[in-house]
Lab assay of single mutants.
Amino acid sequence: FDIYVVTADYLPLGAEQDAITLREGQYVEVLDAAHPLRWLVRTKPTKSSPSRQGWVSPAYLDRRL
């Protein structure tokens, strides 16, 4: 999967189903980028939180090589 970094805090609107909150600087794996406005991502697990999966706007993501 492609690795992206979150460029700004992402707080989903209440109406968005299956969306997750992301923090600036967080790394995520993009699982599904087929839709231009919503990408399915999975967060990297940390010592304090397990990995999470949900939909985010790709405008908040920047690809890492």
Score class of each variant (00 low, 15 high):
residue 29 E to I: 13
residue 42 R to N: 02
residue 62 D to R: 15
residue 36 P to C: 05
residue 39 W to T: 00
residue 5 V to I: 14
residue 47 K to C: 12
residue 13 L to E: 14
residue 9 D to I: 03
residue 34 A to R: 15
residue 9 D to P: 05
residue 14 G to P: 15
residue 16 E to K: 06
residue 30 V to A: 02
residue 40 L to S: 01
residue 11 L to D: 12
residue 39 W to I: 01
residue 58 P to W: 03
residue 43 T to W: 07
residue 10 Y to N: 04
residue 15 A to Y: 13
residue 19 A to S: 12
residue 21 T to A: 13
residue 48 S to F: 13
residue 18 D to R: 05
residue 13 L to T: 15
residue 64 R to V: 15
residue 60 Y to P: 01
residue 45 P to Y: 06
residue 26 Q to K: 02
residue 5 V to L: 09
residue 33 A to P: 06
residue 55 W to I: 03
residue 38 R to A: 06
residue 65 L to M: 13
residue 60 Y to G: 04
residue 2 D to C: 13
residue 62 D to I: 13
residue 38 R to G: 03
residue 1 F to C: 13
residue 52 R to L: 14
residue 38 R to W: 10
residue 21 T to H: 13
residue 36 P to H: 07
residue 3 I to V: 12
residue 38 R to Q: 06
residue 5 V to K: 07
residue 13 L to I: 11
residue 40 L to I: 02
residue 48 S to A: 11
residue 35 H to C: 09
residue 44 K to F: 15
residue 36 P to V: 06
residue 29 E to A: 06
residue 61 L to M: 03
residue 36 P to D: 08
residue 45 P to K: 08
residue 53 Q to R: 07
residue 32 D to W: 11
residue 26 Q to L: 04
residue 30 V to D: 00
residue 56 V to C: 07
residue 2 D to I: 11
residue 31 L to I: 12
residue 5 V to E: 05
residue 6 V to W: 01
residue 63 R to C: 08
residue 57 S to V: 05
residue 57 S to L: 05
residue 47 K to N: 13
residue 10 Y to F: 10
residue 17 Q to C: 10
residue 28 V to W: 01
residue 45 P to I: 04
residue 27 Y to K: 06
residue 21 T to V: 12
residue 1 F to N: 09
residue 29 E to V: 10
residue 1 F to Q: 08
residue 65 L to P: 14
residue 18 D to A: 06
residue 29 E to L: 10
residue 19 A to Y: 13
residue 44 K to S: 09
residue 52 R to F: 10
residue 44 K to D: 04
residue 15 A to C: 14
residue 39 W to L: 01
residue 7 T to A: 06
residue 22 L to T: 01
residue 57 S to G: 03
residue 44 K to R: 14
residue 32 D to H: 06
residue 56 V to K: 00
residue 21 T to C: 14
residue 1 F to H: 11
residue 46 T to Q: 07
residue 11 L to T: 14
residue 24 E to C: 13
residue 57 S to K: 05
residue 24 E to Q: 15
residue 33 A to R: 14
residue 57 S to I: 05
residue 32 D to K: 04
residue 26 Q to I: 05
residue 10 Y to I: 08
residue 15 A to D: 15
residue 2 D to N: 11
residue 26 Q to F: 03
residue 29 E to Y: 14
residue 48 S to L: 12
residue 31 L to S: 01
residue 34 A to V: 09
residue 27 Y to P: 03
residue 14 G to S: 13
residue 41 V to T: 01
residue 26 Q to S: 06
residue 63 R to Y: 13
residue 32 D to I: 08
residue 11 L to P: 14
residue 21 T to K: 09
residue 59 A to G: 07
residue 39 W to H: 00
residue 14 G to F: 12
